[in-house]
């Protein structure tokens, strides 16, 4: 995977009913991405958080590759820095259909909602 064990690592996973789960993850502060985003001011790239949702979906479904076909809407509600935010939860609610999966996901911790994602992925 592109970002697992590089940008984030999975600490724990609680599976819910059907295709739903809550992943407890940590951000890896020494990820090379922060050298450029931004120099001297590490901010988590929003797109890396979308990729984190995709990789959690791959873990949940066992799919070796998934592609994000559509993003109905993805809102970034708060900025995140690996210096101040270490622990996060990625909550996924997915449904399988003929063409792939509908994915509704949220990245949050006890204090803050960081991201809401609603889209379609397929293998």
């Amino acid at each position: 995977m592109m970002l697992k064990d590089k940008y984030f690592k999975v600490n724990d996973c609680t599976k819910g009913e059907g295709l739903s789960a809550d992943y407890s993850i940590s951000l890896l502060e020494d990820c090379e991405v922060y050298a450029g985003h931004f120099p001297g001011e590490p901010i988590c790239p929003g797109v890396c958080n979308i990729q984190t949702v995709k990789e959690c979906m791959m873990l949940l479904t066992g799919e070796k590759s998934l592609s994000i076909r559509k993003v109905k809407r993805c809102r970034f509600k708060a900025l995140m820095s690996p210096q101040t935010v270490r622990q996060l939860n990625v909550h996924i609610d997915a449904a399988k259909h003929d063409d792939g999966y509908t994915v509704v996901a949220r990245i949050y911790n006890a204090e803050t909602d960081f991201m809401e994602f609603n889209g379609e992925m397929s293998s």
């Binding site: 929003g46 797109v47 994000i68 993003v71 809407r73 993805c74 809102r75 970034f76």
Partner: peptide
């Protein structure tokens, strides 16, 4: 910063 991605189609 990206605030929102809407209607992305690949």
């Amino acid at each position: 910063y990206i605030g929102e991605v809407k209607g992305f189609c690949l």
